[in-house]
Simulated scan of single mutants.
Amino acid sequence: MTTTKWAIDPTHSEIGFKVKHMMFTNVSGKFTKFDASIESDETDFENAKIQFTGAIDSIATGNADRDTHLVSADFFDAEKFPEIKFVATSFTKIKDSEYDLTGDLTMHGVTKSIKLPAEFSGLMKDPWGNTKLAFSLEGKINRKDWGLNWNSALETGGVLVGEEVRLVIELQFIKQ
């Protein structure tokens, strides 16, 4: 059995998230500095070793004040916890291009197991002869499970920042 290593292609990948603001609109953000890798059997990605790290200070939501608040001690506390990390514990093929990715997500000093549906988008050679593969992942986590508890009550009832965080991830890898 041959093991193949894949490295992230950061220019064609995005680690994004969405959170409700004032309980009725979504604010989107992403990590601009990250790394990921896959080690797998040449012919099948089931039980592949998958790892990801993202730099907390690279959070970008399109608003400098909000980004500064997110990396502060109120939220991620980037000074104390500079990265978010994911290590897969299983990658199970459900059918055709559908997988379940389970692993340990560590952020803000807390590690919890999460499960995300993953769609294998394909494998192909680019015009320069590099073999590439892609996965799309979407899922939901509750930020309070990782101690990200800051919020502000609204006069009209409810809170400023939603607890549920939707993950929207597009990954492209290059065969090493």
Rank of each mutant, 00 (worst) to 15 (best):
68 T>S: 11
125 K>H: 08
116 L>V: 05
60 A>F: 13
105 L>F: 07
98 E>Q: 13
96 D>S: 09
102 T>P: 06
37 S>M: 13
97 S>T: 14
93 K>N: 14
39 E>F: 09
81 F>P: 03
135 F>M: 00
121 S>F: 03
115 K>V: 15
81 F>S: 02
96 D>W: 02
101 L>Q: 07
43 T>M: 11
65 D>I: 06
106 T>F: 12
120 F>T: 00
132 K>Q: 08
115 K>D: 07
94 I>D: 11
98 E>C: 01
55 A>M: 08
126 D>E: 03
129 G>N: 10
76 F>Q: 01
64 A>V: 10
88 A>H: 07
69 H>D: 14
115 K>C: 12
41 D>C: 02
56 I>L: 10
35 D>Q: 14
87 V>W: 00
64 A>Q: 15
49 K>W: 06
75 F>V: 01
54 G>C: 05
56 I>H: 04
41 D>Q: 06
49 K>C: 04
66 R>P: 13
133 L>T: 15
120 F>V: 01
41 D>R: 00
118 A>K: 00
43 T>P: 03
98 E>L: 11
124 M>F: 15
110 V>C: 03
85 K>C: 06
124 M>P: 02
89 T>R: 04
120 F>G: 02
69 H>E: 14
66 R>K: 13
88 A>F: 08
128 W>D: 07
94 I>E: 15
73 A>D: 14
69 H>P: 09
113 S>Q: 15
107 M>S: 03
85 K>A: 12
63 N>L: 06
72 S>D: 06
73 A>P: 02
34 F>S: 05
104 D>C: 05
82 P>W: 00
139 G>I: 02
118 A>S: 11
86 F>Y: 15
119 E>V: 10
43 T>V: 09
142 N>L: 12
35 D>Y: 11
101 L>T: 09
72 S>C: 04
70 L>G: 05
43 T>Y: 12
99 Y>G: 04
78 A>K: 07
88 A>P: 09
142 N>G: 04
74 D>W: 07
107 M>V: 09
140 K>R: 10
141 I>F: 00
49 K>G: 08
86 F>M: 08
88 A>Q: 09
36 A>Y: 03
81 F>K: 00
83 E>P: 07
43 T>H: 13
124 M>A: 15
114 I>F: 15
78 A>H: 04
49 K>A: 12
93 K>L: 12
62 G>C: 06
130 N>I: 13
57 D>H: 08
111 T>E: 09
69 H>K: 10
75 F>G: 05
85 K>G: 07
93 K>W: 07
128 W>N: 09
62 G>V: 01
109 G>T: 02
139 G>Q: 00
100 D>S: 14
94 I>Q: 15
87 V>N: 12
53 T>V: 10
62 G>T: 01
41 D>W: 00
44 D>N: 15
113 S>H: 08
127 P>Y: 03
129 G>L: 09
44 D>E: 13
58 S>C: 06
133 L>D: 01
86 F>E: 08
57 D>W: 04
128 W>G: 02
60 A>S: 12
63 N>P: 04
115 K>Y: 03
58 S>I: 03
61 T>A: 13
130 N>S: 14
100 D>R: 11
85 K>R: 14
60 A>E: 15
139 G>L: 00
100 D>W: 05
115 K>A: 14
125 K>W: 00
35 D>W: 07
106 T>R: 06
77 D>N: 15
136 S>P: 01
133 L>N: 03
39 E>L: 14
118 A>E: 04
